[in-house]
Structures are given as structure tokens and as C-alpha cells.
Amino acid sequence: MRRLLALLCLAALPAAAQEATEVQTDLDGDGTIETWVMETDDAGGALLTVDGLDGIRVYRDVVWSGAMAGTTPSLDVAPNGSLQIVSQNEAIGRDRWRQVLTVAFRDGAYRVAGFSYDWYDTLNPDSRGLCDLNLLTGRGVVMDGDHEAEVDASVPALPLAQWTSDTFPGECLP
């Protein structure tokens, strides 16, 4: 009886599922809505897929992905129609962060046009900051605690196919 009860309890638990978010936008301006899907793959990485007029494109390792709530990436659409890829660590350890890549269609390619990164230390309220870069113009702002400075972006507006989770503008390091 106990064995049957244990099996029934295990069966009632939700199965491990891949996290996925989906948005639609006409990012390339061709009049056809593209469907963008972000999901975590079996290895724990992020997989971004776009289904548009010219078929399906897959981008691997664009952003970091964790395996639990508060660490999985998601998608959003900015008010101007640009795609936003959000990755974060809002769940583990004392160092919390959130990164937003803004993707726009420029010069015939999906490009990372903006990079925003904010961070804070859960045990030290004075340790916080923000970095917001427009990679199309090459300009941005960095705030570390109460200190704010304008900066030049060290990374250009790379095509999405060239951006990886390891791409990180040095001026944005906490």
C-alpha cells in the first residue's frame, strides 16, 4: 500500500518541462509577422527560433539560461516593436542581475542593437549598478552605485548570429 501511495505521489508531480516563451512582431518590416520562441534545451542552454517569411532560423547560446525559475530567459516586444531577450539571475546567490538584449533589423540582418544590464548584491545595498548601451550609436550610460558616467560602447551592433552568451561589453562589468 505504501509503495502504491508513493508511486501515486510521484506521478502527481509535474514533469520536468522545457521553459518556452513566444512573441510575435514584424521585426524585419516585410509585412509578415515573425514568431520568436525562446526555450531551454536539454543541456540547459538557450535556444532562440524565429519563423518568418524566409523560413525558420535557429540561434543557439545567445543568452545564458539557468534551470530554475528566476534564471530562465524570456522574450518581450518593446513599444517600438523591437524584440527583447531577457536573461537573469533573480534566484541564486547574493549577486543578482538582469540583462536585456534589444534586437532590431538593420542592414539586412537581425542585430543586437541595445544592451542593458543591471545588478545588485542582496547583502550589500550599496553594491548596485546599471549599464545601458545603444550599440547602433555606440553610446551609453553606466551607473555604479551613485556614480553615473557616459561611455562609448566597446561592442558594435553585431548580427544576432554572431552574439553569444559570452559577449559582454567590458564597460558593463560590475
Score class of each variant (00 low, 15 high):
A6M: 08
S74Q: 04
F105M: 07
W119Q: 07
Q162C: 00
Q88S: 11
R60W: 00
G93P: 03
A91G: 10
D118Q: 14
G66L: 04
R128V: 06
N89D: 15
W36G: 05
G44H: 12
A12H: 01
H147G: 08
V63Q: 02
C172S: 04
R3L: 14
L47E: 10
S116Q: 11
P159S: 08
L27M: 09
T102V: 14
N89Y: 09
V103C: 09
I85V: 15
L75Y: 01
T49C: 09
L160A: 01
G31E: 04
Q24S: 15
D121T: 07
W97I: 01
A157V: 07
Y117T: 01
L27V: 12
E39I: 00
L101C: 12
E148D: 06
S82F: 09
S74P: 03
Y110V: 02
L53G: 12
L75R: 03
L48N: 04
W119E: 06
G81N: 12
D146M: 07
S65D: 12
L47Y: 10
A15L: 15
A46L: 08
G140D: 01
G44Q: 13
D118L: 13
G140L: 03
G93Y: 03
H147V: 15
S116F: 05
V100L: 07
L83F: 01
D95H: 11
I85S: 03
L83R: 00
L130S: 12
T102P: 10
R3D: 14
D76I: 01
L135H: 05
D30Y: 13
E90A: 11
A157C: 11
L8R: 07
A67E: 15
V86E: 02
L173D: 11
D51Q: 12
E19N: 12
I85P: 03
